[in-house]
């Protein structure tokens, strides 16, 4: 195994493009190192991107926030302006692993591990996050939901890697929230995860909404029917019930050791409603 620590995006892309065997990106390493230790992956090349300029920064851009690919959950949690703007995304990120893991784990890594149960991804989907990808053909920006294609697999091509995640500018009277269900209180994988982001007008009517759903299908889902149930409503109980029903209807889960189809489908609706109420309260200030 070859370990490389490039200092520019271009040299990282060159290394990845020129790799003859399997290549993996190392940022926080909280997925990669565990997989290597257990023998699940045996990469020929590991490219550590932490020393590349911008990978460790959280920067304001066009009223939104650009989060470098090597920024840890702990750094996000300590960034007051980011927490104020996108509390749902930050709380989703902070649910991952232990305190120790939080010191290393990254938003981009959680996304590129491509687990359908990744906590930060439904929250990023709800937030309308845009991912910047560098590669042999230059840089491109793509919606977050287009990165994972199936469990463990992303849409990134050879030589490509995620350099940052962009959370857009927030309209006034907006709020987001993420909730997950786990059998324990921490150190667990989501059985269901749900992110909700919404915007209200002066009268308290919902003008925009996005709902992201995790662990109930092969990839994180964007539930447009659920968003539609909120838009135009005051997010009252009737609208929330309609949204919960849309969320449950969108679920395509499996029976496995972590939960049953019936359980996941039901709890997805419950969580969506609870998350929407938190997002609503945040939007109302």
């Amino acid at each position: 195994m070859i370990y490389e620590v490039p200092e520019t995006v271009d040299s990282a892309v060159a290394l990845l493009s020129g790799a003859t065997g399997s290549a993996r990106i190392l940022a926080g390493g909280t997925d990669l190192l565990v997989q290597m230790k257990s023998g699940v992956v045996e990469p020929d090349l590991v490219v550590d991107i932490k020393r590349i300029d911008g990978m460790k920064s959280i920067a304001q851009e066009d009223g939104g926030w650009r989060i470098g690919a090597a920024v840890s959950g702990a750094e996000m949690g300590e960034h007051q302006a980011l927490c104020a703007a996108w509390p749902g995304v930050v709380e989703a990120m902070e649910l991952i692993g232990s305190t120790q893991v939080q010191g290393r784990a990254t938003l981009a890594g959680n996304l590129c591990n491509a687990s359908p149960a990744a906590d930060s991804v439904p929250a990023m989907v709800a937030a309308g996050a845009v991912v910047r990808v560098a590669g042999p053909d230059g840089v491109r920006d793509i919606p977050v939901e287009e990165i994972p294609v199936k469990p463990g697999k992303t849409s990134l091509g050879k030589g490509e890697f995620v350099t940052s995640v962009f959370l857009p500018a927030r309209p006034v009277n907006s709020g987001d929230a993420y909730l997950r269900f786990i059998p324990r209180t921490e150190m667990d994988i989501a059985v269901v995860g749900c992110g909700v982001s919404l915007t209200l007008d002066e009268a308290g009517t919902c003008t925009a909404a996005r709902v992201g759903l995790g662990a109930v299908a092969a990839t994180v889902l964007v539930v447009e029917d659920a968003a539609a149930a909120l838009i135009g409503s005051k997010a009252d109980d009737t609208a929330l019930d309609k949204m919960a029903a849309a969320v449950s209807a969108a679920c395509k889960p499996i029976d496995d050791k972590r939960g049953t189809v019936a359980f996941r489908t039901h709890v997805a609706g419950v969580l969506a409603k609870r998350a929407a109420k938190i997002a609503l309260a945040r939007a109302q200030g």
């Binding site: 059998p183 324990r184 921490e186 667990d188 972590r258």
Partner: peptide
């Protein structure tokens, strides 16, 4: 055995 690890063999954690 489908859960040979402490992730899916769930002993309580302190916060439980």
């Amino acid at each position: 055995l489908q859960n040979p690890g402490f992730l899916d063999y769930r002993i309580p954690v302190a916060s439980d």
